[in-house]
Nucleic acid binder design. Structure first.
Lengths: 195, 195
DNA sequence: CCCTATTTAGACCGATTGGTCTAAATAGTC
DNA sequence: GACTATTTAGACCAATCGGTCTAAATAGGG
């Protein structure tokens, strides 16, 4: 046991992520974390430098293991508009589950700790810009394929789609009804047709 | 001085609101509050029962003094679609200012403390539902006046407009660029035309 | 089996948290 | 000007915060 790490770092990170996601950064105490991650104080500060550093790793973990797959899966759609719609449908499906009521960790973080921590704030802002760029590229693809009017401003449409997606995450965490969440997606799909 | 309150409660409440709005609930300490409100511990606990109770009053203050006027002003528009557009334009103008980078206190609260405090969570959810209902009634008015297609589903459209508005607040607090925020509003205006 | 590198459990740290309490100061009433 | 109701300033509280440190336990290499 002494020579290599005694616990599954990946597993512990996942548990920490879950906790931060549910309770937010400030409301998650060290005691909470140690209990949930099932490690001791010593290993905690040995493996992760501190609470903030763990949080940063949890954010990256979330980006790679939660956000990434959603867009990866959507990218398999051959129709670029369908790729965008698929993102909305996946987020909707998730938002309707018990799990999904936690919202999106990036959105939660953007509001709670982003404004007070430059590094973290930048990380989530860059992530948002990535989503916007993803939508934008898909819309440009759609235009090239004639799926969308030539005059469509991809950047503007991408921005509004991003806002729609973030809004849905807020509504989900705020406990909005199923009908409201579904309406957002159908309206997004309609928007994609009329774009 | 003994017989009535020694300080301007309204003023103190406004300063507290500002602080909660900027830093969030958890990150705002009693020391912060006392300093900003320029009152002593004694008067604090005399006038407001505690931190949570002050926060609740700050939320109500925000609802009455910040959110209310926006919708009140918009309601003076004779064209119901213009009333909705006016809300978006006002929120945009605010979001572009230094002040507006705080986002919306209700949105911030919905994500940070809403999930952990039923009373507060309900308060913000009800507020969101109010906005949705406002949009909905305006859209129904528009339909009656023939400004909008007869088949338009006012409820669905209202929900997506709400999501768009919340998304804009998230983007503003996350530090999104001017272009992104403006795009959201122009797109919302376009959506209103095609509805 | 000894040595060594590492992890363990948990005592301990100062700082800060939200909240209470008391004694002095204050400004009205009579 | 004494009395009284109230506010003041700030000492004080236990609990918790994130973080450090040490001694015992552990399991590899030689």
């Amino acid at each position: 046991m002494p020579w290599e790490e005694q616990f599954d770092v990946e597993q512990a990170l996942t548990e920490a992520l879950e906790l931060f996601w549910t309770k937010g950064y400030e409301s998650t105490s060290l005691q909470d974390l140690l209990q949930t991650m099932k490690i001791t104080r010593g290993s905690f500060y040995n493996t992760f430098k501190g609470k903030r550093e763990l949080f940063l790793r949890a954010l990256e973990h979330y980006r790679d293991c939660v956000v990434g797959p959603v867009f990866g899966k959507a990218a398999t759609e051959s129709n670029p508009l369908e790729a965008i719609a698929a993102v909305f449908r996946m987020v909707l499906k998730d938002s309707l589950s018990r799990q999904g009521r936690k919202g999106c960790l990036f959105v939660n973080t953007a509001l709670e700790v982003g404004p007070q921590d430059k590094e973290i704030g930048d990380l989530v802002r860059v992530s948002f810009e990535g989503v916007e760029a993803y939508f934008c590229s898909k819309l440009e693809e759609a235009r090239e394929q004639g799926l969308v009017q030539q005059k469509t401003d991809a950047r503007k449409s991408a921005a509004s789609l991003l806002a729609l997606l973030l809004g849905m995450r807020v509504l989900a965490r705020a406990g909005a009804g199923r009908a409201t969440l579904e309406s957002v997606v159908t309206q997004a799909e309609n928007t994609l047709c009329f774009i």
